[in-house]
């Protein structure tokens, strides 16, 4: 099964060196997961202040600054993994460095079979 892991945390509590360390550890983790055949994709995101929200109403795109909802924790990055079941996904989530500062939300991927395949 494929699982999306969304990493939420309070951006303001991270120091620069903590962020750098988290990214380095995350890169290591991705290589480990790749070796285990479980890695599909992963990336950190820029700060939430870079976010842009778009809503289409009556056929018109409304563009606003910032995220749609104000919450204490912001989405800071994601992993897409292939795991046998939820327990394996939980084990992977527990290894994500961001889990130590924030929350990892595990969401099973709803698989559609008629999606295009990316051309390399």
């Amino acid at each position: 099964m494929k699982y999306m892991m969304l990493i939420y945390s309070d951006e303001s509590i991270w120091t620069e060196s903590e962020r750098a360390k988290c990214m380095a550890e995350s890169v290591d983790l991705c290589h480990q997961l790749n070796g285990e055949g479980k890695y599909l994709s992963a990336s950190p995101l820029h700060y939430v202040e870079t976010a842009t929200s778009v809503r289409v109403r009556d056929g018109k795109a409304l563009v606003t600054d910032g995220p749609f909802a104000e919450t204490r924790e912001q989405l800071g990055g994601y992993y897409l993994v292939d795991a046998a079941n939820l327990d394996e996904a939980i084990d992977i989530a527990s290894r994500i460095p961001g889990a130590r500062m924030g929350t990892v939300e595990i969401r099973p991927i709803f698989e559609l079979d008629n999606l295009p395949v990316v051309k390399k």
Partner: peptide
């Protein structure tokens, strides 16, 4: 079913 909670 959907979250893949294992039967183990």
């Amino acid at each position: 079913r959907n979250a893949g909670i294992p039967y183990e």
